[in-house]
Amino acid sequence: MTYKLILNGKTLKGETTTEAVDAATAEKVFKQYANDNGVDGEWTYDDATKAFTVTE
Rank of each mutant, 00 (worst) to 15 (best):
K13L: 07
Y3I: 03
T55G: 04
A34N: 02
T11E: 09
T18C: 15
V21I: 13
L5A: 02
T18R: 05
D47I: 09
G41V: 02
V21T: 12
E15R: 06
E19H: 13
D47F: 10
V21D: 10
E56F: 11
L5E: 02
Y33C: 05
E15A: 07
D22W: 03
Y45M: 02
T25E: 13
Y33G: 00
A48C: 08
T25Y: 07
T53G: 03
V29G: 04
K10S: 10
E19L: 14
V39G: 02
D46E: 05
F52T: 00
A26D: 00
G38I: 04
W43T: 01
T16M: 15
D40S: 13
G41I: 02
Q32M: 09
T11A: 09
T18P: 01
D36H: 07
L5G: 02
T17D: 05
K31S: 04
D22I: 03
A20V: 04
A48S: 12
T55R: 06
K13M: 08
N8D: 09
V21P: 15
G9C: 14
A51V: 15
T17Q: 09
A23G: 04
D36E: 13
K50G: 05
K4R: 12
T49A: 12
E56N: 05
T18S: 05
K50M: 11
G38C: 09
V21Q: 12
T2C: 12
K13A: 07
T16G: 04
I6T: 05
G38R: 06
T17C: 11
T17F: 14
T16E: 06
I6P: 00
V29S: 05
K28R: 13
K13G: 05
D46S: 05
L7E: 02
T25Q: 12
T53Y: 09
M1Y: 15
E42Q: 11
E15W: 14
E15Y: 13
T11W: 14
T17G: 04
I6E: 03
T2E: 08
Y33Q: 03
K31W: 07
L12K: 10
K10T: 11
T49S: 11
Y45L: 02
G38H: 09
Y45E: 00
W43P: 00
E27H: 11
N8W: 12
N35P: 01
F52L: 01
Y3S: 02
A24G: 08
N37D: 03
N35F: 15
A51C: 15
K13N: 08
A48D: 11
K50W: 05
E27W: 15
Q32P: 02
V39L: 11
K31H: 08
M1L: 13
G38N: 10
E27C: 14
T25N: 07
L12G: 06
T25F: 07
A48Y: 11
N37L: 15
A24K: 11
T2D: 05
K31A: 05
A34V: 09
T53N: 04
V21H: 12
F30E: 00
N37S: 08
L7I: 15
E56L: 09
T44P: 00
N37K: 14
D36P: 02
Q32C: 07
E19G: 05
A24R: 10
K10L: 15
E56A: 07
K31L: 08
N8R: 12
T17P: 02
K4Y: 13
G41L: 03
T49Y: 07
W43G: 00
K10I: 14
D40C: 14
G38A: 06
E19M: 14
V54M: 05
K31N: 04
M1S: 13
A23I: 10
T11N: 13
T49I: 09
G9I: 08
Y33E: 01
G14R: 11
K28H: 08
Y33M: 05
T2P: 05
G14H: 11
E42A: 10
E19F: 15
V29D: 04
D22E: 04
V29Q: 08
L12D: 05
A23W: 14
M1K: 12
A34Y: 02
D47S: 12
T55D: 06
T16Q: 09
A48L: 13
K28Y: 09
L12C: 14
Y3W: 07
K50T: 03
F30G: 01
T55W: 09
Y45V: 01
Y33V: 05
A48T: 12
F30R: 00
K13H: 10
T44F: 10
F30Y: 01
K50A: 05
V21F: 12
F30H: 00
D46L: 04
D36M: 12
G38S: 06
A34Q: 01
A20T: 05
Y3E: 02
F52K: 00
A51P: 00
V54E: 00
A51Q: 14
E15N: 06
W43N: 00
T18I: 15
G41M: 03
A24Y: 10
T17S: 11
G14V: 14
T11L: 12
N37G: 04
T17A: 07
K10P: 11
K4N: 04
T53V: 06
K4Q: 05
E27L: 15
A23Y: 13
T44V: 10
A24Q: 11
E42M: 12
K13T: 10
K13E: 05
A23Q: 11
T25V: 07
Y3P: 02
E42N: 09
T18N: 04
T53L: 05
E27K: 10
M1H: 14
W43L: 03
T25H: 12
V21K: 13
V29E: 07
G9Y: 07
E15I: 13
E42H: 12
Y33L: 06
N8L: 13
D47G: 08
T25M: 11
G14D: 08
L5Q: 01
E19P: 05
A23M: 12
V54L: 12
D46F: 04
D36C: 09
Y33A: 03
K4M: 08
Y33R: 03
K28M: 13
V54N: 01
A20M: 03
K31R: 15
F52W: 10
W43K: 00
A20D: 03
A24C: 12
F52P: 00
K50Y: 09
T49G: 06
E27F: 15
D40P: 04
K10N: 11
A48R: 11
Y33I: 07
T44M: 09
T18Q: 05
G41W: 06
L7N: 01
D22G: 04
V54Q: 01
G41D: 01
T17I: 09
Y45I: 01
Q32E: 09
K4V: 10
A20Q: 07
T2H: 07
A34L: 10
D46C: 08
T55F: 08
T25D: 09
N8G: 04
T2S: 07
A26Q: 00
V54A: 03
D36S: 10
T53Q: 05
A34H: 01
T55N: 09
N37I: 14
A20K: 03
F30L: 05
V39M: 08
A23V: 12
K31I: 07
K31Y: 05
D22L: 04
N8K: 11
T17K: 07
A51M: 13
I6A: 03
Y3A: 02
G41F: 03
G14L: 15
D46G: 02
G14C: 15
E56Q: 10
A34I: 06
E56R: 04
A26M: 02
K50E: 02
T2K: 11
E15C: 15
A24P: 08
G38P: 02
F52S: 00
T44E: 10
D47K: 09
V39W: 14
T11Y: 14
D22Y: 04
T2Y: 09
N35T: 14
E15D: 05
A51H: 06
G14N: 08
L12A: 07
F52H: 01
T18F: 11
G14Q: 11
E27D: 04
F30M: 02
F52N: 00
E42V: 14
A26G: 02
K50H: 12
F52I: 01
Y45D: 01
N35W: 15
T17N: 06
K50Q: 10
E15L: 11
A24S: 09
T11M: 11
A23D: 05
D47W: 09
T44N: 08
E42R: 09
